[in-house]
Computed example of a mutant assay.
Amino acid sequence: MSVLIVIPARYASSRYPGKPLAALRGAGGGSRSLIERSWRAAREVQGIDRIVVATDDDRIRKAAEGFGADVVMTSEHCRNGTERCAEAHQVLGASHEIVVNLQGDAPLTPSWFIEDLVAALKADPEAQLATPVLRCDGKTLSDLLADRRAGRVGGTTAVFGAQGNALYFSKEVIPFLPDSYGPADPTPVFHHVGVYAYRADVLASYPQWQTGPLERLEGLEQLRFLENGRRIACVEVEARDRLFWELNNPEDIPKIEAMMAEMGME
C-alpha cells in the first residue's frame, strides 16, 4: 500500500502566529526551524513513498523549499491540519492508499510511532484511521497538569476501549484521577501524540462534514471523526527512552530544546 506523509503548516495560528518558522536549537547549538525539524523527523520513517509540506503561506513555502522539501500549496480556508492533508492529497492526484498527517509542531516524533501506525492500519481493515497514544510517566503527567493549572492549552489526552478504539480525546487530563491514586501506580493517563494515518476514502470525506459541537469546544480535529461515527484505532507506542513533547505554546521552546540536548539531537 502506498503511503504519503503530509506535514500541514500554517502561519496564521491564533495561539502562536508563525509557529512553523520558530527556531529550535539542537544539542550542538545549531538552529533549525520547527518545520524543518518536523520534515527531518518524517525522513527517518521507513516504508514511505513521498513526503510533502502542505501550506497556504509563501513564507513557509520558501523556507521549506530552502531546506529541500517538496511543497504543496493549499487553500487558506482549510480549518485544520486534516483538511489541509485532504486537499494536498487531492492536489497530488489522490494516488496514495494511506495518508499520514505529521503535524508540523511535533519534531520529537520518533519514526517508529509512524511505522507502528501504518502497520496497524494495514493489519486492521476495519480501522479507518489510526493515531498513537503514549502512556504518561510521572513527569509527563505532572507537566500536563501544570499546564492546566497555569491556564495553558498544552498536550491532549486520550481514552479508549478494550479493543483499542478511541472513546474520547480532550485537552483536559482524562480520565479523572481519584485521591486514592498513588504516584507509584502505573498512570492510567495516555498522552495523545498528534499524528494520524488515514485511509484515503475517509480522509476525502472529512472536509465535507460539518464541524460538530465537541470539535468546536475542544478544538480537536479528530473529534469530527468520532462525531460522524468513524472508528479511530488508538495504537499504544513505546517511548524507548525517547522524550516527547509537542510545541503548542512559546513556553514549550525551552522545554523541547532541553529534551533535544538531553537526547543529543543536533
Rank of each mutant, 00 (worst) to 15 (best):
A94D: 15
I60F: 00
R135E: 04
L223P: 12
V45K: 05
Q128F: 03
R84V: 12
V159G: 03
V133H: 02
E218H: 08
A239Q: 11
F244N: 05
Y181S: 11
V133W: 02
D179K: 14
G154D: 10
L129T: 10
R148K: 15
F160M: 03
L203E: 07
G104N: 13
C85T: 06
L226K: 10
G154W: 06
R59Y: 00
P175Y: 10
E36T: 13
F225D: 02
A64F: 13
T211L: 15
V3C: 12
H89L: 07
A146S: 12
R43K: 13
A69M: 13
L214M: 12
S205A: 15
D252T: 11
E126G: 08
F169A: 11
K62F: 15
V202F: 06
N248A: 09
P17E: 08
R40A: 15
V91W: 01
V193N: 05
A88P: 08
P213Q: 14
G219T: 07
V235G: 03
I232H: 07
K171H: 15
L220I: 15
A23P: 12
A63M: 00
S31C: 15
E36G: 03
G47K: 05
A22F: 04
G18K: 07
E251I: 11
D58I: 13
V189N: 11
A27S: 15
V118D: 00
G212E: 12
R15Q: 13
K171C: 07
G154E: 06
G47F: 04
I256P: 02
S31K: 13
S2G: 01
S180T: 14
F113R: 03
V6G: 03
G68A: 14
N228C: 06
K122L: 12
E251D: 15
A42Y: 05
P20T: 05
G104K: 00
H96P: 01
V53A: 08
Y198E: 03
L21I: 09
A233Q: 02
A54H: 02
R37T: 06
C136D: 07
E172W: 10
N228G: 07
W209D: 12
N101F: 06
G182T: 11
I256F: 03
K62N: 08
A69V: 13
L102D: 07
E238T: 09
R135L: 09
T211V: 15
Y16A: 12
S142D: 11
